[in-house]
Design a protein around this nucleic acid. Sequence first.
DNA 1: TACAAATATTTATATATATGAATATAGCGA
DNA 2: TCGCTATATTCATATATATAAATATTTGTA
Lengths: 132, 132
Amino acid sequence: MPYRVVVSGELAKLFGVLSHPIRIRIIEELQQEDLTVGALREILDISHAAASQQLAVLRSHHLVIEKRQGRNVFYHLHNPALAKWIMAGLVFILPDRREVDQISSAIKNVQEVWGKDLKPKKSTTVKKSQST
Amino acid sequence: MPYRVVVSGELAKLFGVLSHPIRIRIIEELQQEDLTVGALREILDISHAAASQQLAVLRSHHLVIEKRQGRNVFYHLHNPALAKWIMAGLVFILPDRREVDQISSAIKNVQEVWGKDLKPKKSTTVKKSQST
DNA sequence: TACAAATATTTATATATATGAATATAGCGA
DNA sequence: TCGCTATATTCATATATATAAATATTTGTA
């Protein structure tokens, strides 16, 4: 198979995995610190099953790594550069005129939160509580 | 709307647009030189309508710009950095064991072709002939 | 046992894509 | 100017795919 076809196919798959808001948010949250499924569920305000499913998609493409710790499963990025690379893609977002203000101010906010230099990882810190 | 939601949604849309092999190949081909629909059709070996449709997707997200010239319509990248950014995503492709060799050699090949320094653009050069 | 997470299944929805036909636009020649 | 051809876009339709959300079930662990 011609290599261009192989590679464009693989890239397309990668982009497919990234083409969901929840999965992007998971990746950005994981850049800050390792998190359990329950913690992500809470942060993203989604059901447990949903969090698990989206993590499974990321896992199946080796973008995140799971690490069991007691009854919790912590996730971290296989390659933290992924989160940075995604942020670099922000410049290619070209909203339509009417949304320009709203979206570009949102981008600025997000760059401060997701884009700033990272705190030293507290990877094994367990959140105190976790409901449902 | 919380800005994280806005931005992750916009990014997801962008990734969605890029999650098709043909569209990726179009972007990489356009990095080398501006091309007409017919030229792309030929290079990618797809139908004329298919080329036009995929270009419409890219156009609707402002990733490519059309410029009419006589009876041809030339396309170019709105932001050539897009092609480079996509190539930078290659490092996040983590194939399964069995495909590792095939895919990583394909990636190497592609990096030579799509990743090398660009020739000065001959943007308005019209291809001599064009069948079908 | 009870909790956390993963897995499996189903359902519903959306979406993409290929194809062929119709339409539009531009250049060319009589 | 009037056709004729080349190029490109659009539309309609059928098919395929995917995809997500919801639910239920299972597994592992304290």
